[in-house]
Design a protein around this nucleic acid. Structure first.
Lengths: 210, 210
DNA sequence: CACGTTCTAAAATAACTATTCTAATTGGCA
DNA sequence: TGCCAATTAGAATAGTTATTTTAGAACGTG
């Protein structure tokens, strides 16, 4: 390398995530991304093949950070901790959380799909998360991991905590203090497999705000 | 009226909902809507002020159909029936369900917000649903409807059933037969207010596919 | 049977988009 | 010092979009 780069690949990805989080997928035009970074559009095309590649990279980056947070806990057979980890993950970076949890891939990649290597990388991540779920169900349950048990686990650990956060993400407000309690209680009433967490309700289920 | 209209307002709204459901918000261009209906673009502008007005009308229509399904049950103090009603509602019209449940308003109205009358109508609908939730919490609980109880009710009755359906809506697959059971079980383990539904698990919680 | 309003029809416009292209810089290394 | 690949810089291009405009067709009414 002979000329030092003024911008990094990550600058463009961060700008893309922020723009989509703020104004939806169509707000992330190549010009808007460049303007936010302070670079000319040519510098984006020097690093990425196309807009679909930028969006794909952004999606994979955000998805990977969530998988890295959840998968180890799942493989350890700790579904409750995994579910509770989504809240701090979303607080860690509000843009990233809004980008990943408030957008469907079909809306993000409507113009053209991401290039093949990115699609493969995403499938790999999805496979990793899926395997972690299966391992968790096997560890917690009675061994027979049928479709229903897997769907139950994904709902209780993944989709339900996200559904608790979504209304607040959507209106850009911080999640309330009782969100954590709501997530925790999910893992007492509804069975994943044989596991039931313990009591019917946590001891402090009726406590008010701490 | 002197010349009979070949198309109705509803034709354009239906086409818009279908297009967004299939390919995301950006797929619903004025030309694509016109082509799907078999009309020229001028016929859209004869009925709607702008693209934002078409999308806004489509959103309000879909939202209203869901509110009309849920609100009466909530006002009757039947949260469990309301939660279970979302599944048949989504089966009734897959396009409408995908359109409403898989898109955030911020993504749909990113270019320009809907005109004021439509925004007001939507606020009215949101207010109606909110009031129905409050009435339901008041009817089922001990009267003190704090923020947390309301958030719990909205999650158990609205967001959680949607979260159960979302993965299937997203990949265009029909929801599995156990989806209904999962929704029903939510209303046994986690309290909305004082109400707890009855047993800890429904009698047939361990039954396999019927 | 004309009239006038409502609607269809499609071409024209102006703005915006992703992408490409051509120069101009940069800064370590020979 | 002077060279040269990597990078910046931004103008140019081709295509698409929402919207407007202009013209023509339909049909109940008087």
């Amino acid at each position: 390398m002979v000329r030092t780069a003024r911008f990094t690949e990550h600058d463009f990805i961060d700008a893309t995530i922020a723009l989509v989080a703020e104004g939806g997928p169509a707000a992330a035009t190549m010009q808007a991304i460049a303007r936010r970074v302070g670079a000319p559009t040519g510098s984006i095309y020097h690093r990425f093949d196309s807009r679909a590649a930028v969006l794909g990279m952004a999606w994979n980056t955000a998805y990977a950070s969530l998988v890295r947070t959840l998968a180890p806990l799942l493989r350890d057979g700790r579904p409750r901790e995994a579910a509770l980890a989504i809240l701090p993950w979303s607080r860690e970076d509000g843009y990233r959380a809004r980008f990943l949890l408030l957008n469907e891939p079909v809306s993000l990649f409507e113009d053209s799909p991401p290039p093949a290597p990115l699609r493969q990388a995403l499938e790999q991540l999805e496979g990793e998360l899926d395997a972690a779920f299966q391992a968790c169900v096997a560890a917690c349950g009675d061994g027979t991991a049928c479709d229903e048990q897997l769907a139950r686990a994904k709902f209780l650990i993944f989709d339900a905590p996200i559904a608790i956060l979504r209304p607040y993400l959507s209106r850009g407000a911080p999640p309330p203090s009782f969100a954590e309690r709501m997530i925790a209680e999910l893992h007492c009433g509804m069975p994943i497999a044989g596991m039931r967490g313990g009591g019917r309700l946590p001891p402090n289920a009726d406590a008010r705000l701490p």
